[in-house]
Measured scan of single mutants.
Amino acid sequence: QSFTCPYCGKMGYTETSLQEHVTSEHAETSTEVICPICAALPGGDPNHVTDDFAAHLTLEHR
């Protein structure tokens, strides 16, 4: 399964590499985005909106 960065649209990330990408490239970004990992999880929330995606990844998807 691969994920797309909700900020810049780059594709092909794993859960881990998406977290690394967001932390390095978009750490200061506070735009509201939908978490693509939550959306892909069975029973996950397809509409989970977060305005601190880097922190959300760290808390929810480590």
Rank of each mutant, 00 (worst) to 15 (best):
C38S: 05
V22Q: 01
V49K: 15
S30W: 05
T50S: 09
A54R: 04
T16N: 10
L18K: 06
A54S: 10
A54L: 12
S30I: 07
S2P: 02
A54T: 12
E15W: 01
F53K: 05
E25Y: 02
H21A: 04
A55P: 03
C8G: 00
H61A: 02
H56F: 00
R62W: 08
V22I: 05
T23C: 04
T4E: 12
H21P: 03
H56S: 01
T50Y: 04
D51R: 14
S2I: 05
P42R: 07
C35H: 04
C5E: 00
S2Q: 10
T16H: 11
G12Y: 01
L18T: 06
P42Q: 07
F53R: 04
T50K: 08
C8T: 00
S17H: 15
T29Q: 06
L41D: 15
P6H: 01
H61F: 00
C5D: 00
T14I: 08
F3C: 00
D45H: 10
T14N: 14
A39T: 11
Y7F: 13
C5T: 00
E25L: 11
T16S: 12
I34A: 11
L59K: 14
Y13L: 14
P36R: 03
I37W: 01
C35E: 03
T29R: 08
A39P: 06
S2Y: 07
T23D: 13
E15D: 13
V49H: 12
S17L: 13
H21V: 03
K10G: 12
S30A: 04
Y13K: 04
L59Q: 15
Y7L: 13
H56R: 01
Y13G: 05
H26N: 06
G43P: 08
A55F: 04
T23A: 14
P46V: 05
C38G: 06
Y13S: 05
E20F: 03
T29G: 08
C5V: 00
T31M: 08
Y13I: 09
T50E: 09
F53W: 02
N47Q: 14
Y13N: 11
A40T: 08
E60F: 13
D45T: 10
S2C: 02
C38A: 03
P46H: 06
T50N: 04
M11R: 09
T16F: 10
V49F: 15
A55S: 14
G12S: 05
H61T: 01
F3M: 02
S30Y: 15
G9N: 12
E32Q: 07
E25V: 12
T31E: 08
S30K: 15
V22K: 02
S2V: 06
H56A: 01
E20I: 03
L57S: 06
A54H: 07
E15H: 00
Y7W: 03
Y7N: 09
L59M: 14
H48T: 15
F53V: 03
R62Q: 10
Y7P: 03
C5Y: 00
E32A: 13
I37T: 02
E60M: 10
T58P: 03
I37E: 02
T29N: 14
Q19S: 07
L41P: 08
S2E: 07
E32Y: 03
Q19M: 00
T23F: 11
P42A: 09
I37K: 05
T58Q: 09
M11T: 14
N47P: 15
L41S: 12
G43Y: 05
Y13C: 12
G43F: 04
H21Q: 05
L59D: 13
G44Q: 13
N47W: 07
L57V: 08
F53L: 02
D51H: 02
S30F: 13
S24T: 12
V33T: 02
H26L: 05
Q19V: 10
T29K: 12
E15A: 07
A40L: 07
F53G: 05
T50R: 12
Y7I: 15
H21S: 03
S24Y: 07
I34K: 09
T29E: 11
H26D: 06
N47H: 09
T14L: 10
L41I: 14
P6Y: 02
I34W: 01
A54P: 09
E20N: 07
T29I: 09
D45Y: 07
L41R: 14
S24F: 05
A40R: 07
K10H: 03
Y13F: 08
A40H: 07
T29W: 07
L41A: 13
N47C: 09
L59F: 10
Y7D: 11
E25K: 10
H21D: 00
C8Y: 00
F3G: 00
T58A: 15
E25G: 11
D45Q: 13
T23N: 12
F53D: 05
L59T: 15
G44F: 09
D45L: 07
E32D: 06
L59R: 14
F53C: 09
Y13P: 04
G12I: 05
C8P: 00
N47V: 08
S2T: 02
A27P: 14
A27I: 12
E60A: 11
L57Q: 02
P6K: 00
R62F: 05
